[in-house]
Design a protein around this nucleic acid. Structure first.
Lengths: 182, 182
DNA sequence: CGGCTTACTGAGTACTTACTAGGTACAAGG
DNA sequence: CCTTGTACCTAGTAAGTACTCAGTAAGCCG
């Protein structure tokens, strides 16, 4: 009774498909934000249908969670504790190599300022953790920790908007000199 | 032939209605971003129908333009030229009093990083102008100007996300002390 | 080969999206 | 009073929204 059932698309193991989904979704959120994201576009980008996509993530919010979890996992490494200045230097250098991911977080970060955004709590605790560990590295100076975070975020946005004008690494090194002087 | 034509809603002069539209739209963009904004919600918020709304702004993009233009107009004042440090101090103090507008700009700023966002060019030239005039006030030190802008933006986002934790004015004054020292 | 799990599809639901066409009623100017 | 401009309406269109249901086939284990 049904149609011939096109089976021309690849059938991937769940883990692999999930990885692909996260990648595609990240790109699209960086472009349109979470509210502007459509399941259809994600499905198209993965070469499957919307219900096929939903089979893996359950819902649109599940999609967002998948992205954030994945990103956290690959971020936890590299936070080995040197001193604050060298840590920031290496963070900035890594970020300079992956503008798309930085943009994903910049967009989601701002969008999730609204208290009922599905990622609101995620970003709040994320920032608190960041500031806590930065504060520790700064010898208890929380104000400095907050300033460092603010400066990194701000410079990254300038860089993303106008990649030609601003070299992120140089801009940060300049800023660090001022922040960490004395 | 047509229905009784409900005329229970207020009929406002164009200028007044426009002002209301801008206000409602600002609130909604701060919440959902431009991609997440719906004409229906704006119309509801103004107490009129969607075509009634479209009569004033023409299209969804026209709506965004109206918001940005209005905001520019009310921002141009107050930029009287003292020195950089006192200018920033007063900017921060004004922003601390209008978190909703700051949030509108934070969200739209990040969302418009994508090159084909309707407000992309607007925010690019806006930032360039800001940096140019800050640079002048900083005696030609563009790096400092960029750092000041970055720091203000970054601290504002921290404040918006967690208003309880961070007092914006105090956070800025601390930061200014470090930035403008020497 | 047989049976089970599961990745995935087609079809459909109920709703929302931006936007248009064409008309109505209010207000101001002659 | 009558005309003209305009603020705003109803009705409709074509497309897109997230999501559900029931079924199909590919891969694995025995």
């Amino acid at each position: 009774m049904s149609q011939p059932f096109r089976r021309d698309r690849a059938r991937l193991p769940a883990a692999e498909r999930r990885k692909q989904i996260v990648e595609v979704t990240s790109r699209l959120i960086a472009e349109y934000g979470f509210w502007g994201l459509s399941m259809q576009d994600v499905a198209d980008g993965c070469g499957l249908t919307v219900p096929g996509l939903l089979h893996h993530v359950g819902s649109k919010e599940g999609l967002l969670i998948a992205v954030l979890e994945e990103r956290d996992r690959s971020d936890m490494t590299e936070m080995t504790g040197q001193d604050l200045k060298t840590l920031c230097a290496s963070l900035v250098r890594r970020n300079a190599r992956q503008p798309e991911i930085v943009r994903l977080f910049a967009v989601l970060d701002a969008e999730s300022l609204a208290p009922d955004h599905p990622a609101h709590d995620y970003f709040r605790t994320r920032e608190r953790r960041a500031i806590a560990s930065f504060t520790e590295l700064a010898g208890g100076d929380e104000a400095l920790a907050r300033q460092v975070v603010a400066m990194m975020d701000g410079l990254q946005i300038q860089w993303l908007r106008d990649p030609a004008e601003a070299d992120l690494v140089k801009a940060w090194d300049d800023a660090a000199e001022r922040l960490f002087s004395e």
